[in-house]
């Protein structure tokens, strides 16, 4: 009897991620959701530029690699080209909230019927640990060697809060994967984001507060603790927008 198996939507190949990185967990959650919804054959994923650039080698569904930050625009094209397809992007903080902010905001404003998985680990991992738009105040990175100074480079961007002011988006939720209960909640959110798309409800974005032990200079365990102690107070978990639920609420 098989009790547990690797999701079919995740290919059986070694991942290039560093030990202790949470990308692997989120990949698995996305793949499990694709399996459970039985949509692998109809799903097209868009990989970003950043640590998860090679996600196209890891998911079994069709994949497209986009230019840095442009995944939501590419996803828009795919979805408009064939609305019957299930289209998701998988993007990090630099990709989604720095260079790709315009594409992110406008895809949300259009309520583009796509699913966005947003990995917020407060750093550029692939290039070796530079400041991200979501790096915390005081956080030391390669390009904020004296700690992020808001007087020089502003404050970290809260993507869910920012997008929640738009009329457009259907669903925005922030989750994390630093503990078993949080991982379960994250999966539920990711599933809802895909279900929304299947139901034609529009733009869903799940922000996953994640760790980067390598570039944070921490052990994997301490990195998970750092999420709890430093990241979550600034990036509170929760649902930031659920338009359908709100509208149903209003009707009642």
């Amino acid at each position: 009897m098989i009790v547990y198996d690797k999701p079919h939507a995740l290919l059986d190949v070694p991942l290039h991620y560093c030990p202790g990185c949470t990308h692997g967990i989120v990949h698995k959650l996305v793949a499990e959701v694709i399996d459970e919804l039985g949509i692998e054959g109809e799903t097209i994923g868009i990989a970003p530029v950043g640590c998860s650039v090679m996600a196209y080698d890891y998911f079994a569904c069709d994949m497209i690699e986009a230019a840095h930050g442009r995944a939501p625009a590419v996803a828009t094209g795919v979805k408009r080209g064939d609305p019957s397809k299930i289209v998701f992007t998988y993007q990090g903080d630099g990709d989604l909230a720095s260079i790709g902010m315009a594409e992110t905001v406008h895809a949300a404003a259009r309520n583009e019927n796509i699913t966005v998985i947003f990995i917020n680990n407060a750093i550029y991992g692939m290039t070796g640990g530079q400041m991200a738009p979501t790096s915390l105040v005081g956080q030391v990175t390669q390009t904020s060697p004296y700690g992020r100074d808001p007087k020089l480079c502003g404050y970290p961007i809260k993507v869910c809060e920012l997008l929640s002011e738009l009329e457009g988006p259907e669903y925005l939720e922030r989750v994390t994967v630093n503990s078993i209960p949080h991982i379960r909640a994250a999966k539920k959110a990711i599933k809802k984001a895909f279900q929304n798309q299947i139901a034609g409800k529009g733009f869903s974005l799940i922000e996953v507060v994640s760790s980067c032990p390598t570039n944070w200079g921490m052990t994997p365990q301490n990195a998970l603790k750092w999420i709890e102690e430093k990241m979550l107070p600034y990036y509170p978990l929760g649902v930031y927008k659920d338009r359908s639920a709100n509208e149903e609420g209003k009707k009642e």
Partner: peptide
């Protein structure tokens, strides 16, 4: 990236500006 990393360290010490832009 070392160009940016070097500038990030040096510019604040000499009253210069290093800024990591949101895009190229």
């Amino acid at each position: 990236t070392e160009v940016a990393a070097y500038m990030a360290k040096r510019m604040p010490k000499i009253g210069g500006t290093f800024l990591q832009a949101e895009s190229e």
